[in-house]
Amino acid sequence: MENPDSRSISEIESEQQASTEEVVSLAKNSEFDREIFTEFAVLLDKFTPVLVAIKDNEKLMDRPPVKKGVESIEKELTRAKKLIEGACSRSPIKQIVVVTQELGRSLGLVLFASIDASTEVKQDIAALHRELMNVKFDISFTPSPSPSPSLGSSPCVIHGPRPSKESGFVSEQGSFINEIEEEKISLSIDDVVLQLKYGNDEEFRLALLVLSDFIRDKVIDKEWIHEEDIIPILFNRLGSSKPHNRLTIIQILRILALDTDENKVNHMRNVLTFLHNFGCKFKNFHFVAFSHCLVVCRRK
């Protein structure tokens, strides 16, 4: 936040659409690894309708975390552009996978912050997010890969700003992303609790990502969170975690707090409907309804 971006999210979105189209065009016309870049271009093409949907949703655009996520996507698109322009005889496949998954993470950030978005928009974003995160390019077309594929030693390395400083959802090093994704997929609900409690920073970060996915996809409910003492665990780790983990913790807590409020309102609505249906039997209907509402409100 040291350098606040004065552009509105609408401007960012428009620039991004143009940027996406530019990267798609570059990818299609690349002389190296044509097949890979074509696949990459097809994926990027799917960004445009999602960006338009975000742009059309005013509620969504007002949320700073969404803006942050959109800016993060912008950075990744710039990296992709540099990657394609700087493509050389050594296969940049690893880097394309890294960039694609970083784009997926940035989109995940947008998705995570899109509480107010319509189900349709969220589904579209989630579908593209999944596709980007599980990307696998067909390497049979590429020339023999370099023996040392690490990002740092590759001449095609991108020295752009790493988005890890910008959000709590991105990884530290691109070369570890594949491993992290595999670990993420293999984590069960029990593993998540274990890693949240006792995992080191890296394991904890992974568990947080999976937990946020579970909450978003409604794999876990309020009862499970209560039974497993997730909230005290998160608060316990808040004091000792790394900055991006802390940010993710608070974002998860906000969603849980919001969930509780929504549950409260729904519960109150159910009580009122119930009482209304049987209201004729009660002389003091309003008093009973009010008492029930008070009871619900006092629940934490």
Binding site: M1, P64, K68, P243, R246, L247, I250, Q251, R254
Partner: peptide, 9 residues
């Protein structure tokens, strides 16, 4: 702490 973290908190 960090501006983002402060905002969320």
């Amino acid at each position: 702490r960090d501006a983002d973290e402060g905002r969320e908190a």
